[in-house]
Design a protein around this nucleic acid. Structure first.
Lengths: 230, 230
DNA sequence: GCGATTTATTGGACCGATCGTCTTTTAAAA
DNA sequence: TTTTAAAAGACGATCGGTCCAATAAATCGC
């Protein structure tokens, strides 16, 4: 799914060396600014391809400051995951727990929102978690557990919503909503990747359509085998 | 899906300078060796994170030779995609056109093969196309079309097999097999990504299970709307 | 209130890796 | 004998992450 942080970037700027005069409204949100900028760049280009220089330059934060705010690129990356997860969790909460809608409509609303997010960035930005997951082969091992945990969290929220839908009769009884939720996030990450490749919304919408159509079939395990008489 | 090339690497080795004596069986497969080695490394670590030096070192090909065989890293990358696509196409052909099996069983056999491939490399290697797709934000634009075309090819083969399954009554009539095939590859790339993240087969098998279970439901477009009375 | 100390922030140097190129050297092929 | 295929390895420019010295603000002792 796509995100939003770091859309507006209007940060500090100074020339002289040493500690600068305290900028008026700036508080100490330099760290946050770096995180938001980092998320924006990493969702587009990934971890390895994005240099600290580029992040700092766009955020207008001097290079020497980086190691004042973070220990290393690795720990910075972990912070990005946390920031992204927090942002995303608020979003999921808003949609999947929206009592004003029927459960399945909440899922649709969430998907609509994600599609709008990707469109807003011309399908150039993907999902930070998906990006980093694919890069794991070249990433610090510390990322793995964290990414996995984030996905499990999203799945848990989704499973809960699907259970409500099942209770409402919109999903075949006997379906494993945990499996369906896992299936959704496995596939959705694929759809985001594909949308980034095609630079268009078709894969997202196709995934939505077929996924929701499939919800009626379910009774997941049992039906699968009966189909071809295994 | 996972791949296989460059499992055994026992390449040329010489010390003296200048053109070496023609190795006995070697023919002129240095180019192929580089391609196979490149595929192996890129499926694991991606394009950006993999340096030419590393590829050359593993293949035991001297650095000075690279630009004799390829124009640049970019054109090398394009050759890798071609090589991977060719390899993969043979594999899809073998499974999806195996008249000895029922259509849906061919799909299952293909998935089994892919799972075995990923297991063989301890779930460290993914799909070259998926990897490069996710990296597109940092890749030469020339890769985009080629990657997309490869995926369309896989989908076409898959759609054909699904149509046979529909004719055999294993998929609800009225289903759009083109949509289902696209859905499969969108989601499967996500499953491979997730399996790489988790370093285990669960996502692959879960995706298989739910996807095949869903095939019974289908009549894709129509059913989707009737579910929640949109 | 005022000098001394501490802390926050930054300019820029550092070192290693990477890509792509080039020259020289040697062996095979013609 | 000449030409071509292939390799060794250095090279430069660039860029990556890291770190330290320099400097100003904040704080404290008196």
């Amino acid at each position: 799914m796509s995100d939003d942080p770091a859309c507006l970037v209007t940060p500090p700027l100074s020339r002289r060396r040493g500690r600068p005069p305290r900028a008026p409204g700036d508080g100490d949100d330099v760290r946050d600014l770096l995180i938001r900028t980092g998320i924006a760049l990493l969702t587009e280009k990934g971890y390895v391809a994005t240099g600290l220089d580029e992040i700092l330059q766009i955020a207008r934060v001097p290079k020497g400051s980086f190691y004042h705010y973070f220990d290393s690129k690795e720990s910075f990356g972990l912070r990005l995951i946390d920031g992204y997860a927090a942002y995303f969790d608020r979003r999921l909460e808003r949609f999947l727990s929206d009592d004003a809608r029927a459960p399945l409509d909440r899922l649709r609303a969430m998907i609509d929102d994600a599609c709008a997010g990707m469109a807003r960035h011309a399908y150039r930005r993907g999902c930070l978690v998906g990006n980093l997951g694919q890069e794991m082969g070249a990433l610090p091992e510390s990322f793995r557990q964290r990414l996995h945990d984030v996905l499990l969290g999203w799945q848990a929220r989704t499973a809960h919503c699907l259970r409500l839908a099942r209770d409402a009769g919109d999903i075949a009884p006997g379906s494993s909503c945990a499996d369906l939720a896992a299936f959704f996030w496995i596939g959705w990450e694929g759809a985001v990747l594909r949308a980034k490749l095609e630079r268009g919304p078709v894969p997202l919408r196709l995934f939505e359509k077929v996924f929701i159509a499939g919800l009626g079939a379910s009774a997941v395990g049992a039906r699968a085998r009966s189909v071809s008489g295994e």
